[in-house]
Structures are given as structure tokens and as C-alpha cells.
Design a protein around this nucleic acid. Structure first.
Lengths: 237, 237
DNA sequence: TGTACATCAGTGAACGCGCGTTCACTGATGTAC
DNA sequence: TGTACATCAGTGAACGCGCGTTCACTGATGTAC
């Protein structure tokens, strides 16, 4: 690994060279260990092997660093969701499910980003840049919902995409923050969070009239044998 | 109001008389203002008009106080849910919806309790008393789900009640913690959190096959005129 | 290619602050006789 | 009813700590000529 981290002063010389990045990394480490509240500016500096005054060259204060992390989090989140959605390929429903799984994966694999974004208590609404990034991420879910809504069978009332998107978001967030977190506050569960969410979304979609007995158009993309797909809550015993 | 609070030393004498209670009250105030992380032991003491050493007569440390609050929170939560469920009267479906609303009402009206319970980061699993209280509250939702599952139309596979309960819980928590909080971190929404959750639950229940076009057995309990109930997502325009 | 100089990104010491926690103490309360 | 005494619930001063932030500073880097 050639990427330099945790290097002491001695081998580094006077200038760090990449302090801003190192501080963000350190903050992520700390947040994932101790939560957004447990993270301190001084700790981050120490971790980067730099004096406590050095961070002020790169961030106005602690809050700006956290906002910076949330910002990046939303960007990564957006790109992950975009990738998962893949413009609805190979079919809308299975792509939609993939988005739900990507949501959970992000919450689990990037707990620090996730809590900076959703649990740090920083008022997203009052920071325009952050707000925009947050909305771009949500827009993916919304766009997916839009495409899904267009699929409504004739005769069925077409549900508002905005509402669908908010529903999916709250389901995902609920499962993620109760059961899918990386830290100690996670609650135990008799099944995987992924399965729980998948079943939840499938039942929901069926409630909207998008699925009847089987999932239309999904089979080609699904790698499980057909026999195992009796219903949204797993194999029958 | 005869209940004495915020009284200074002068009018109180040497003994407080009700310090434990006063500290819990103060902590609730502080948590609802600044989040569970922002609350300090010293602050609570100050608020109760008492020296910083006094709290140690009643709580081993800060964490014990927070756990104490979470404990009470779960108890109040349980009693609220029990009341809302009302043993499934007048009918299972409408009672079930009432539980969802009660969930949101609790999160909104008792943000301090709610965040001590779900967002303070304290590991519920490792505190048996707390764990038990938490499970008693969840048991209400589970019992309600059980009754609902028993309603499954003949021919429909009967969904596992545990899973249903977890789904309902995560929906409620998702909506509550994204949109229904009392503090500044709440996100803006084009509709009320209550309506959002109600629609979500209804669509979900329909997905399970419990509702077809209209909600069976609900009309008697519902106070809205029948004409407004075209679908789970509100009045048609 | 060399040199003077501006700019930049760090240092390290210091500050004031509020925290959690401890300690010996003291005033109030309750109880045995 | 009075009194001695144990117990309880507070006090207030002190501690060590780590925090965020500021300051004048200095070493390294880049650039104009």
C-alpha cells in the first residue's frame, strides 16, 4: 500500500501534504467508532499526526468538517444509488429492489457517512450546498418511483411518485437505523435486514397493484431458482 | 400550579425533597433541546438548583440517568400503544392504524424520550431491565400483528406476525425519525407525517391481502365521510 | 541557473471553559427509648 | 414528650482532564526576474 497515512512528524517533514484528506479520513474513523457526538476536532488532529491548531487551516470549525463529511456522504450515496438503479435495467421492479439493497449496504458499510448525513443533528435545510446534495440523492429514488408509477396497470389509480419515494425512503431508513447499523446500538433481528427490507418493499409494491402472484419481468434478472420464490416472506416450510 | 420546580436554595432549605424526579425532568428538558449528546450531568444539577455533586446521591453516573429515562420512555410508550390498540376495538384494522398514529404522536410529543430510547446510542441489549421494557413495548405491536395475521383471507398465505410487526415498526420509526421529530433536524415534507405513514401502512396491508378496494370493517370506526376515502393516498382531485 | 520574496501550511504554547468525579463536611430528618 | 443518635441528602471546594480556539511564529514551497 503506497498511500501514506498515520505518518508521524519525523518521516513527514513540516508539511503534511494532504492534511485535509487525512482529517476527513480520521473523522470518519472516529465517527464510526464513537458516533458523530463523540468525535472531536482535537482527536482528528492527533490522529492525523498534526498539532491541534492545524485543522483550522482547512476547516472553519468542527461543524464545517462534519458538514463536509455529510456532503461527501450524499455524493457517494447518490452515485451508489444511481449505479444500483442503472436506469431501470433490466426491468423496473428488480432495479427498484436493487436500490433498496444499495441503501442498506451504504448504511451498513459506511456508518460514519450515514450518521453524519442523517443522525448528526445538523440542520440540512439551512446549508444550501448540503441540501442540494441531499436532494440529488433523493432524486434517484424519486426517479425510480416515477418509472414504477408509470407501470401501474390500467384501471388502477396511478399513485403519486413523490409519495412512493418517501415511503421507500422511510422504510429503508427505518430498517437501516434500527437493524442495519454498524455499531453497538444495532438491535438483534431474527432475519437479515436485507431480507426484512426486501419483503417489506415487495409487499408494499404488491399493495400498489404492481405485483400479483409472481413478480412480472423479474425472473430473467433473478438468480434464485423459481421454486424458492413463493411469496415475499421467504420459502414456505 | 402547586408543583415546585426550579426553586432556588433559599426557598427550599437544605433538602430538595424530590431531587431524583427533578433531575429526570431537567434531563428531559435538556435532551429535547440539545439532543442526548448535548445533555450534561452538571447542567441537570444546575437546572434543579442543586450542587454538581448532588446527583451522585441518586444516579451512579450520567449513563445511569439516561438509561433511567429510556426506561421510563419505554414504559410510557408501552402504555400509549396499549391504549391505542385497545385490544383491537372496534376492529382490528382501524385499531392497527391507531397504533401507528400513536407511535408518531409519541415521537413528536416526547422527542426527548424518543431519542433516549432509540438514538442515544446506549446498547439496549446489554441492560436487561431496559431490554425487557423495550420488548414489552414491541410486544404490543407484535400482538396487534398477530391478530391482523389471523384475519388473512382464506386462500391467502398467512404472513408471519413477527415479520409484520418488524415492518410496521420500521415504517413508523423511519417516518418518525426522518420527518416527525420535534427538533431542527426534521426534514420538510409535502404532507403530514401522519398521513404519510397512514398511507404507507394501508398500502402495505393491502399488499398482504387484507384490504381490497375498501377497508373491511373500518367504516363504523372512521369519522371521515366515506366520499373522501378513495384510496390510501388521499382524496382524488 | 540563482536568488529574493510572497505565500502557504504547519508549530507549540497558552487561554478560558465546563465537564465528571471525589472528598470531608454539615444540616435535616426520622427513630428508639 | 424529650432527647440522643444514626442515617440521609445535601454542600462547596477541589482535582485533573480534554476541549475549542487564538496567537505570534517558522519552515517549506513556489514564482518572478
Amino acid at each position: 500500500m503506497s498511500w501514506r497515512k498515520d505518518q508521524g512528524r519525523a518521516e513527514r517533514g513540516y508539511h503534511h501534504g494532504n492534511l485535509k484528506e487525512a482529517l476527513l479520513q480520521a473523522a470518519l474513523d472516529l465517527i464510526s467508532k464513537k458516533g458523530p457526538a463523540g468525535f472531536t476536532f482535537a482527536d482528528a488532529a492527533r490522529m492525523a499526526g498534526v498539532s491541534p491548531a492545524a485543522p483550522y487551516r482547512h476547516f472553519r470549525d468542527r461543524d464545517e468538517l462534519i458538514a463536509s463529511i455529510a456532503q461527501r456522504g450524499f455524493e457517494q450515496f447518490e452515485s451508489l444509488l444511481t449505479q444500483a438503479w442503472d436506469d431501470g435495467r433490466p426491468d423496473t421492479v428488480s432495479a427498484f429492489e436493487r436500490v433498496g439493497k444499495a441503501y442498506l449496504a451504504f448504511a451498513r458499510e459506511e456508518p460514519a457517512f450515514y450518521s453524519a448525513m442523517f443522525e448528526s443533528g445538523l440542520p440540512v435545510d439551512s446549508n444550501p450546498t448540503l441540501m442540494a446534495a441531499s436532494e440529488r440523492a433523493f432524486a434517484i429514488i424519486r426517479a425510480a418511483a416515477e418509472r414504477l408509477a408509470a407501470l401501474a396497470p390500467p384501471g388502477t389509480p396511478r399513485p403519486p411518485a413523490m409519495m412512493m419515494a418517501l415511503h421507500i425512503w422511510s422504510m429503508s431508513h427505518g430498517v437501516a437505523s434500527l437493524f442495519g447499523r454498524g455499531d453497538a446500538a444495532r438491535r438483534k433481528l431474527p432475519m437479515s435486514p436485507e431480507d426484512l427490507l426486501e419483503a417489506e418493499v415487495l409487499i408494499y409494491l404488491r399493495g400498489l397493484g404492481f405485483l400479483t402472484d409472481r413478480r412480472p419481468g423479474t425472473d430473467a434478472a433473478d438468480d434464485k431458482p423459481a421454486g424458492e420464490k413463493a411469496g415475499p416472506w421467504g420459502k414456505p416450510k
